[in-house]
Nucleic acid binder design. Structure first.
Lengths: 152, 152
DNA sequence: CTAAACCCTAGAGATAACTCTAGGGCAAGC
DNA sequence: GCTTGCCCTAGAGTTATCTCTAGGGTTTAG
């Protein structure tokens, strides 16, 4: 049993265009062609494609994914290189996760202010402060400093 | 006290080019100019720039960051819109974190195989299986199926 | 045997986010 | 007052990753 490019697109949620693009970039050297020149994906191909998606999902560049696939095509002998490549990538991903978590904590801090009942008051104070800093440095104040109009 | 673009670049690890690009994209409407037309960053500006970096770090598009900054420039009245924007973004980031964690788990699974003493044997079996699948479907076998040469 | 729905390639176009160049003004030290 | 090292803008160029178009072959159902 093999799959057409359309079926693979449906399974992977990559577009047909993207699959062909990946092939052009050398990411799919393992996908064979049938007698009409059509790509015929096997289940084993889908496994490897899934790995490619995991690498892409975690931010690996196509050039580096190609390097990994090249190692795979070299067979079991390349296990050391594959391992080194994935370990390096793993470190990068973990570092990236940490940075994202840090930034998310700051976003949550902002959200916390926005969610508080005194949000308007706090923001007004911050804006007044930022504006005063501009004036103290002989700079135009870019904030409109609209006072909170009361109802209507 | 204000900072030149060079000093800000050093502090934020954004390049001078990127800072000017962000300004061109409307991300820095709050940065004032001195009498010579030079950008003069205040500490308050650095705070906002830091928020911009958090949003970028978590994958927000420049267009959406501009929307957020536009809300900030509108003053305290825009608290509801800011909150909604950040909450939407928060959800996207958390979802993205989950996907990355999932992909990383799969990479770790691969790494685990590569690290085991029987790695070569396992990979050889996988490759033989994938090759057999090709042959069973009347397709050329793209794997070199080089046997593990023994030492030297 | 033909129309519809696939498949293919080559290559142009799109999008996002920078990155750099050209040409020119300002500021501080010798 | 002139060189050096900043600063500015406008706009061209780059990189990465798709996304689509044109032109053409294949397969299948009526």
């Amino acid at each position: 049993m093999t799959y057409t490019i359309k079926e693979v697109a449906a399974k992977t949620k990559l577009s047909i265009y993207t699959l062909r693009f990946y092939d052009k970039q050398g990411l799919l050297p393992f996908v064979a062609r049938n007698s009409s020149g059509y790509r015929a994906f096997t289940d084993g191909d889908l496994n490897l494609l899934h790995t490619i998606c995991c690498l892409k999902e975690t931010g690996m560049k196509i050039k580096d994914i190609r390097q990994y696939i090249d190692y795979v095509m070299l067979g079991p002998a390349s296990v050391v290189q594959r391992r080194e490549l994935l370990e390096n990538h793993r470190r990068a991903v973990v570092a990236q996760q940490a940075k994202i978590a840090e930034s998310l904590a700051e976003i949550d801090y902002k959200l916390n202010i926005y969610t508080t009942p005194e949000a308007q008051k706090i923001l007004a104070m911050e804006q007044a402060f930022a504006g005063a800093e501009k004036v103290a440095n002989h700079l135009p104040n870019p904030y409109l400093s609209v006072q909170s109009g009361h109802s209507e």
